[in-house]
Amino acid sequence: MTYREALKQGIREALHADGRVFLIGEDVGRYGGAFAVSKGLLQEFGEDRIMDVPLSESGFVGAGIGAAIAGMKPIVELMTVNFSLLAMDQIVNNAATLLHMSGGQINVPVVIRIGCGIGRQLAAQHSHSWEPLFAHIPGLIVLSVGTHEDARYMLAEALKSPDPVIVFEYTSMLNSEKEIPANITQVDISKTKVRRVGKDISLITYGTGVYKCMDAANELAAMGIDVEVVDLRVLRPLDEETILASVSKTHRALIVEDAWKSVSISSEISARIMEKIFYDLDAPVLRLSGVEVPIPYPVHLEEASVPQKNDIINAVKKILNHD
């Protein structure tokens, strides 16, 4: 199944399961979704459940928040993370704030799906990895869909949350095919997932980093290096317990992300490792992050902007040669 189809099945299932659920976003209906994720859903569910909107990001995200407050279960789609900035007022000042500011009176159970990431030559205003901007905000739950099983099953859990959930989906992964194991029909969005168990080093990552790290781990295994791959999956609130348990076991950590390095998810995790389990480390924590540039259009520059499999392999070797 493709990542796109997994996302679509997740949305479809949610629409069937609960009449309060509706999908709202730019071109989700008649166009079939900018990236064809919701293709056919308008025909199946009708225009009350699949709502095309004008190009008014703040307006329709805010409307989704209002509808959620008033008892609906909206799934709001933002075409790319760059456009999400136009709705940042609604997400931060309202969705993330109202429960606390109202003294616990107002829940905002909205789910906002954001197309995100690098790798389709869409240049600097359509491709970034801005999960850290959102993970900075208390009150939000921030998820990153790094695998096909999460693409298929995360949404159902996100819709159960009484609090606002931001779901990052990666446009570069939409066409990728993977089998989803038949025994998986549910995922736990409060928990980080160890995707591969190993003893020599923890590769901590999320989003597009997950499969890259799995591939790197397989090649490293052939060299006799046993890598653990930790898919963060939930970027806020962090599942610190799982992260720290992995590093305490392997004594080494490499954090891999596409996001810009400064003030990022990797900065946060690195700091927490230092604060909580410094004496468990056999080597300094290293980070591989996005180069701090607006993402350029040509493919060679775009690829050079984010960590690739070989960068990961080289960094692992470097850490293991530390002692």
């Binding site: 509706f22 009350d48 703040s58 307006g59 329709f60 995200v61 805010g62 409307a63 989704g64 928040i65 209002g66 509808a67 959620a68 407050i69 008033a70 008892g71 609906m72 909206p74 609604q90 309202n94």
Partner: peptide, 14 residues
């Protein structure tokens, strides 16, 4: 204002 639209939309849907 956008939230108000959404709350009114919810009333309509319900």
């Amino acid at each position: 204002l956008p939230m108000a639209v959404g709350m009114a939309l919810a009333s309509k849907k319900q």
